[in-house]
């Protein structure tokens, strides 16, 4: 979908927000709906709606309640929030292996399912009871069938009078974890999941990590010896012996630079022309500084009051 979509394609769905003790104002929030047409089509596109500008405290129960008030219960299946998609998740493999893996697709193994399970176990527990989204974010709602989605759009178009607007949060009750102090309090508790739970997660993580590392090493070794379709052999880090660590290489480079510098230093101030040039450059430097000072004073002069004693 393109970012700068005109508003015509969207259908506005006003939602009435009841006043709260801390903010006694009746507000109206506007959702913007349209059929979901992602860049990479999926089979579910026809029965899903793209929703822009969802409220930040949205949850599945909220939307379930909202849509059942619009078109009746049982039509809404699920909702995916854009922000729930993890941002960039860095790879767990050593950097080198990733690049190599790009060359050849790894063979599918029977362990794949087991691996996925392991990786899930390696995840750290969340520290929040409930995700809260940024203002004005987007989501995709999935319905039972294409007709339901159509109904929703029609129902939204029909809404004209404010008293008919669906009410946000009606019928959610305790299906969603509470916000406010409970939410903050729970966050503090969830931040300390307990040492043994983390320990278990760590164990799982390093099982996965070690396996991947081994695989990567094997792959790298194989690549070193195998020519590809064009007959080229990929050159990889390390020789017959163990691959050199990067910091060692950097250290060696540092040493080389130092040696070169020392050599250079010895030849400084050796010839007369060097001395002369040095002196000249010093003079030029001083004159330059003088010019800079002048410039500075000129700049000060431009600002008012810099040369006026304060009273």
């Amino acid at each position: 979908m393109s970012e700068t979509m005109s508003s015509e394609e969207f259908i506005m769905l006003p939602v009435s927000i009841p006043p709260l003790p801390s903010f006694r104002v009746q507000a109206t929030h506007y959702l913007y709906l349209r059929r979901n047409t992602p860049r990479l089509p999926t089979p579910d596109d026809s029965r899903s709606l793209y929703i822009a500008n969802v409220p930040c405290d949205s949850t599945d129960p909220h939307f379930r309640a909202l849509f059942s008030s619009l078109i009746g219960a049982g039509r809404f299946e699920s909702i995916t929030f854009e922000q729930d998609k993890k941002p960039s998740k860095s790879s767990h493999e050593p950097a080198q292996a990733v690049r190599l893996a790009g060359h050849r697709k790894r063979k599918r193994s029977e362990d794949e399912i087991q691996n996925a399970k392991d990786e899930a176990a390696a995840e750290l527990p969340s520290t929040w009871t409930r995700q809260v989204y940024g203002s004005g974010s987007c989501a995709v709602a999935l319905f039972a069938d294409e007709k339901s989605a159509e109904h929703v759009l029609k129902a939204a178009k029909k809404l004209k009078k404010p008293k008919n607007y669906p009410v946000w949060g009606e019928g959610v009750k305790d299906k969603a974890p509470p916000l406010g102090s409970h939410w903050l309090k729970a966050h503090n508790k969830l931040s300390y999941p307990g040492n043994d739970i983390i320990q278990a997660s760590m164990d799982a993580y390093f099982t996965v990590f070690n396996r991947k590392e081994k695989e990567a090493a094997l792959l790298a070794m194989r690549l070193r010896n195998e020519p590809d379709e064009d007959g080229f052999v990929t050159v990889t880090r390390g020789g017959r012996a163990a691959p050199a660590r990067r910091d060692e290489a950097e250290e060696a480079k540092q040493k080389m630079l130092e040696r070169e510098k020392k050599k250079k230093d010895e030849m400084m101030d050796f010839y007369r022309f060097q001395m002369r040039e040095k002196r000249k450059s010093e003079q030029a430097e001083m004159l330059k500084r003088f010019e800079e000072d002048k410039k500075k004073v000129r700049a000060m002069k431009e600002k008012r009051g810099k040369f006026r004693p304060e009273t």
Binding site: F23, V25, Y30, L179
Partner: peptide
């Protein structure tokens, strides 16, 4: 900006933490 809606959002998330906006 839907200012009222934004403040209502804050009030909902803040819950009992916010006494008054």
């Amino acid at each position: 900006v839907n200012k009222v809606a934004v403040l209502a959002e804050i009030a909902r998330v803040g819950g009992d933490v916010i006494e008054k906006i």
